[in-house]
Design a protein around this nucleic acid. Structure first.
Length: 473
RNA sequence: GGCGACGUAGCCAAGUGGUAAGGCAGGGGUCUGCAAAACCCCGAUUCCCCGGUUCGAAUCCGGGCGUCGCCUCCA
């Protein structure tokens, strides 16, 4: 039975979709004004696992992910770089999406851009104006926060507790410093759309309300994003949807699912601090599979403190999984039982995996079971069990389906590993074979060192020597 | 100042009332000409500290100490 943590209630509750067999989910994506860092990959990878598990549990999932392609930062950067806002946004969005593909993240059902949803945004703002929940001032439209019946219910804070005026910049136009912009009046040189309440562009929060509504309707089962979005973004989004869609206190979201931050030396990665580990570079350096696994090695709600060593250590362990995968290629797919405790472990792996993911998507526990399974399988295979190899193969495929790992073809699984090493290396290998046959071990070891210098290691297997490229760590 | 989260072996990390998963690193061993890979064995009588509840707590409650996040753009 799947249970999921909900930020609004602060508890793990058994999951049940509003419509049996169908799940609707909305996840806040990125504002593509700069290169993506590791932190941006976390929600995408986490939600990819969530989606996979929901599918596995028999749900049809409709997932909407947004791209905020118009906002202050984007405009600021575009002006500085003298490029159109749309061009800057698309450039970074394309790079981000390419990285997601490399990480094995499946495309959402709808990838929605704010600029392509101005219509529903305007509709919602008009409704809010009509209900007295919003007002026009100085060309802008603001949401009247104090008109919301339960503002703060999601983020567990009271209006009085907010440091009004200290950190929220009061605007001359606002009735209340806490009010936020639904629509920003046109300014020269900035993108703008016509609207009944004046030309301008959408504020940040309204786009999510509009897109969730457009694609999924007034109620959605799951809503995700980083914990840093809980306040004010999701709080604002929640109350404006409440009022615009006439939910009358009925929750529009079943479960608010927030992932923890990726930090570096204990400090949150952020574009503005410039302390983010560039995603593309990490994937190139370590391979996509270890990066993905590393992101899943910590429970999604906990902070993940990135370090070079941490990722490298994970990559080392991951080698064992990939080696087993190699070892069981071609093993019989039939899941024959294997006697003994280890056989039992192999047989039960899929249910252990499902159990871990049912418990609020506990991917570290799932990986723990994976490693248990790998050790048992290796031990049995070393004893010559063909059936164990078959079970291990089935299990690895199950883990791949559930977690999206393996077979990603990143740098950690180089194409040449499976293929032939380059000609010079082959020659060295042949020479070494001759030296070994002659029991000239000094020469054999010298040749091995020569190959190592060129990035290739030799493993003398029972079946004969095997060369493989040194794994990039 | 307010709200929230967290503190488990050298490092990373599950476990949230029934007697500490897993990974990396380290030590010993099997295998090997030697290695590599793989496997076996070894590590917290203990879960930041102090009280309390309980037959029993890393897990619940109270109080400290420490770290982080949010209240500003943010995944």
């Amino acid at each position: 039975m799947l249970a999921v943590y909900d930020t609004a209630t602060g508890a793990v509750r058994p999951f049940e979709s509003r419509v049996p067999g169908q799940v609707t989910a909305y996840v806040c994506g990125v504002t593509p004004y700069a290169e993506a860092h590791l932190g941006h990959a976390r929600p995408a990878v986490v939600w990819d696992v969530i989606t996979r598990h929901l599918h596995h549990r028999g749900y049809r999932v409709t997932l909407v992910v947004n791209i905020t392609d118009v906002d202050d930062r984007l405009i600021e950067r575009a002006l500085a770089q003298r490029v159109p806002v749309a061009a800057l946004a698309e450039k970074h969005a394309a790079q981000y999406l390419a990285d997601m593909h490399r990480l094995g993240v499946a495309d959402p059902t709808y990838l929605s851009r704010a600029t392509e949803n101005v219509e529903p945004i305007i509709t919602l703002i008009e409704r809010l104006l009509a209900r007295g929940a919003a007002y026009q001032a100085g060309g802008d439209v603001y949401l009247r926060v104090r008109s919301a019946p339960d503002y703060g219910a999601l983020s567990h804070r009271r209006l009085e507790d907010l440091r009004v005026g200290v950190r929220i910049v009061p605007s001359a136009h606002k009735e209340d410093p806490l009010d936020f912009a639904l629509w920003k009046g046109e300014r020269p040189g900035e993108p703008a759309w016509p609207a009944p309440f004046g030309r301008g562009r959408p504020g940040w929060h309204i786009e999510c309300s509009a897109m969730a509504w457009r694609y999924l309707g007034p109620h959605i089962d799951l809503h995700g994003g980083g914990v840093d979005l809980v306040f004010p973004h999701h709080e604002n989004e929640r109350v404006q949807s409440q009022m615009a869609l006439d939910l009358h206190g009925e929750p529009g979201v079943g479960w608010w699912v927030h992932n923890g931050m990726v930090t570096s030396s204990g400090v949150k990665m952020s574009k503005s601090l410039g302390n983010g580990a560039a995603l593309s570079a990490l994937i190139e350096q370590h391979g996509a599979a270890p990066v993905r696994g590393y992101l899943l090695s910590v429970h999604y709600r906990s902070p993940l403190d990135y370090s070079e060593e941490g990722l490298r250590d994970f990559a080392r362990g991951w080698e064992r999984v990939e080696r087993l995968w190699e070892a069981v290629q071609g093993a019989p797919p039939a899941a024959e039982p294997v006697p003994g405790e280890r056989g039992e472990l192999l047989a039960r792996f899929p249910e252990h995996l499902d159990g871990a993911l049912d418990a609020d998507f506990n991917t570290p526990a799932a990986l723990g079971h994976l490693f248990d399974m790998v050790r048992a399988a290796n031990a049995l295979i070393a004893e010559g069990s063909r059936a164990a190899a078959g079970l291990a193969r089935r299990n690895l495929l199950a883990a791949r389906d559930a977690l999206g790992i393996l077979g990603l073809g990143g740098a950690a699984a180089p194409a040449n590993r499976a293929g032939q090493p380059p000609e010079p290396i082959q020659r060295l290998l042949a020479e070494r074979d001759r030296a070994r046959a002659d029991k000239d071990y000094a020469r054999a070891d010298a040749l091995r060192r020569a190959m190592a210098e060129q990035g290739w290691v030799v493993e003398d297997r029972r079946e004969g020597p095997l060369v493989r490229p040194v794994t990039p760590l």
